[in-house]
Design a protein around this nucleic acid. Structure first.
Length: 485
RNA sequence: GGCCCGGUGGUCAAGUGGUCAAGACACCGCCCUUUCACGGCGGUAACACGGGUUCAAAUCCCGUCCGGGUCACCA
């Protein structure tokens, strides 16, 4: 037996929008190829001119690139099975349809759209009635001479069953009577999606056809086409759908009303590409050892088709958020700072700020980078606050002892020769020891005065350190003022 | 409606005839702690239902119910 090199393909339409469902399909196609040492092909299906969107192809390239899904062949990188843009393959399809006509496996249908419309209304035939299937040679030539537009349909078997095997769903059998004589070539001479797909996949040597399970019920038609040509049938891998949870608890195909569904939108919401990929890889697939965190490389090494689930999965933003946190925590401080920089700038603008210390207080408590501005804006400007936030039961602070302890801390801090983290730390801790106070009784009022808010990233020491001597003392003075008023 | 597919905690899921039915997210509690987090420990919570087959069923068979998909000269 000859082992053929595995080849998968991702064949998106350029709509300018990359749904996470499509992204996951691309991911699995990529992983199936790579886990088998195969090639992953990108093919653009742009035959629908009406839906053409400027720049939409770039969205596909950009998304795949930032997601880390790299194609071996495609319009931009070439390959020996080109062209990889369907509109450039236009001429290829008709000869195949003609071949089927010549072999008696397909026929020209001259029925008008109006007639077809009526048929579907009457529902007597459940669709097309195969009116043109057995026209005589003379009738056909007559109509051709009259210039009546026609489509080319495939002759489906009138009886019997068609069985195909899917790598995920197993054997599936359908009565041939369910199958209509599908259109191969439209009246405008363009191939239908299904027909073009089969021709392209075969001529590009695709071994594994990977797609969403919404195609499961049209797969017998694909199969019959491969059989009509006498071509080897590829391995079908149908993927379970990604669902969204509705307000009433029901589920339906993931769409906008469930939240962001586009890759770009998720990125804008603050999710990291690595986190999105990691999450959707596990949405419908499970590794042998239940590992959760996967780099793309690890996915390539561990992916296997048998691990793909059959049942639809609900997209869970909470879990995605958790993955995001994990990736943020795992970054080096340098990388964190680099990726956080745009958000720092959002708060501080052009001000000269030493950002190196922010990672220390943010990295362990951040879910998304987009949360940064909200968390650190008190550094840029002291917020308005009520003095009762100086009261904290657990730290044993109240409006009586807060002014006293804050005053003492202020004086001690003011006297510090060096304004460093360690110096501040020792200063305040020593004060607590000497005064026989809980650490919190000293720290709480200092932190509140320095930050102007109850909840802050980092503690009093970190905040004073970042704020610097001048600004810190200014804020503590303000706090004292407030407490005395 | 016909056909196809699916149905293990709120969510993702392991499981393939014998387990006290894993694990993760979320949730709750405790600990740690200068707030919030992080971290650590613990907890609530599931085999849709009804029949079979079998010594034994989440696992196999049938039916019911529920959910989803699909029935284009769209992709």
């Amino acid at each position: 037996m000859v082992i053929k090199k595995v080849r998968t393909r991702y064949a998106p339409s350029p709509t300018g929008f990359m749904h996470v469902g499509n992204l996951r399909t691309a991911l699995y196609e990529y992983l199936i190829a790579k886990s088998n040492g195969g090639d992953f092909v990108l093919r653009i299906e742009d035959t629908d001119r009406e839906r053409y969107v400027e720049g939409a192809v770039d969205v596909i390239y950009d998304t795949l690139k930032t997601a880390g899904i790299i194609h071996d062949e495609g319009p931009d990188v070439g390959g020996e099975f080109g062209p990889y843009v369907q509109s450039e393959r236009r001429e290829m399809y008709m000869p195949y349809a003609q071949r089927l006509i010549d072999e008696g496996k397909a026929y020209r249908c001259f029925c008008s759209k109006e007639r077809l419309e009526e048929l579907s209304q009457s529902s007597e035939f459940g669709g097309y009635d195969r009116h043109c299937r057995d026209l005589s040679e003379d009738e056909i030539n007559e109509k051709l001479k009259e210039g009546i537009p026609y489509v080319i349909r495939q002759k489906m078997p009138l009886s019997g069953k068609t069985t195909f095997s899917d790598a995920v769903f197993g054997e599936i059998t359908v009565d041939n009577s369910e199958l209509q004589d599908q259109i191969l070539i439209k009246a405008d001479g363009y191939p239908t999606y299904n027909f073009a797909n089969v021709i392209d996949d075969h001529t590009m040597g695709i071994t594994h056809v990977v797609r969403g399970s919404e195609y499961l019920s049209s797969t017998p038609k694909y199969n019959l086409l491969y059989e009509a040509f006498g071509w080897e049938i590829p391995t079908y891998v149908h993927l379970p759908l990604i669902m969204g949870k509705n307000e009433d608890g029901s589920v339906s195909k993931l769409s906008k009303r469930h939240g962001s569904t586009g890759f770009e939108d998720l990125i804008k919401d603050g999710y990291l590409p690595e986190a999105i990929i990691n999450y959707i890889a596990l949405l419908g697939w499970c590794p042998k050892d239940n590992q959760e965190i996967f780099s793309m490389k690890q996915l390539e090494e561990n992916f296997f088709i048998e691990g793909i689930s059959k049942s639809p999965a609900v997209f869970d933003y909470d879990k995605l958020l958790w993955f995001n946190e994990q990736y943020i925590k795992a970054m080096s401080a340098e990388e964190f700072t680099e990726r956080a920089m745009p958000y720092y700038k959002e708060v501080f603008g052009d001000r000269d700020v030493d950002y190196s210390k922010f990672a220390g207080i943010l990295q362990q408590r951040l879910e998304k980078f987009t949360d940064i501005p909200e968390k650190i804006k008190f550094f840029a400007e002291l917020p308005e606050y009520e003095k009762d936030i100086f009261i904290n039961k657990k730290s044993k602070t109240n409006l009586e002892n807060a002014p006293v302890n804050l005053q003492e801390a202020y004086e001690r801090l003011k006297a510090l020769p060096n304004w460093t983290f360690d110096a501040i730390h020792d200063c305040l801790i020593n004060m607590a020891v000497e005064k026989e106070l809980k650490n919190g009784t000293v720290m709480w009022p200092v932190r509140i005065a320095a930050a102007g808010q109850k909840v802050t990233p980092g503690g009093a020491i970190e905040i004073l350190d970042i704020l610097g001597r001048e600004e810190s003392l200014k804020r503590l003075e303000k706090g004292l003022e407030k407490l005395r008023s």
